[in-house]
């Protein structure tokens, strides 16, 4: 099963490599990885999506917790949560397809953020399935380049991941 694990990490040199290294050392899988500073300059928030059965996920969270640089973590998939990913896509936009792309962008509630005579750059946010669906819809038109951020997430309701 796919899990989204969010981690508050010491904002120290090498901290990220310890997390990433752990996954490769122990033969765990990283689907997506997303990391950025938080409002507290001493902390980064890292979100990783991984696939594994309950036993594997239990080991992943235990080993992550053992890393000295990991301050706190939560498996978001254990409860209700919001999951988002941002994607920038360059698609061909020539002739009749130019309107078609615009219509599809509207349907997906995406935005065109850059334009040239031959292509559109589209920005779209949503869960991974929505982004995949958009790529599928654009495939016949011609996808030139894709940049995805990887999943970021947060729990629904009053639950807060903080120190």
């Amino acid at each position: 099963m796919r899990h989204i694990i969010s981690i508050l990490l010491e904002n120290e040199p090498g901290a990220l490599s310890r997390v990433v290294g752990l996954f490769s050392q122990r033969n765990y899988n990283i689907e997506t990885l997303n990391v950025a500073p938080t409002e507290d300059p001493s902390l980064s928030r890292l979100t990783v999506t991984t696939i594994g059965d309950d036993r594997v996920i239990e080991q992943i969270t235990k080993h992550l917790n053992k890393l000295i640089d990991v301050v706190k973590l939560v498996d978001l998939t254990e409860g209700n949560h919001i999951e988002r990913e941002l994607m920038l896509v360059k698609v061909k936009a020539l002739g009749a397809a130019r309107d078609e792309v615009k219509r599809t962008v509207d349907i997906f509630r995406a935005q065109i953020v850059d334009v040239t005579p031959s292509l559109y750059t589209v920005q779209i946010t949503g869960d991974a399935a929505k982004l995949d669906a958009f790529l599928q819809a654009m495939a016949p038109v011609g996808i030139l380049e894709v940049a995805r951020t990887g999943v970021s997430g947060i729990a629904r309701g009053d639950k807060v991941l903080s120190l």
């Binding site: 040199p13 090498g14 490599s17 310890r18 290294g21 050392q25 000295i68």
Partner: peptide
């Protein structure tokens, strides 16, 4: 050496 030893230490510092 911090990189080399990363998988075989409890922790490391520079």
């Amino acid at each position: 050496i911090v990189g080399v030893t990363r998988p075989i230490v409890k922790h490391s510092f520079s």
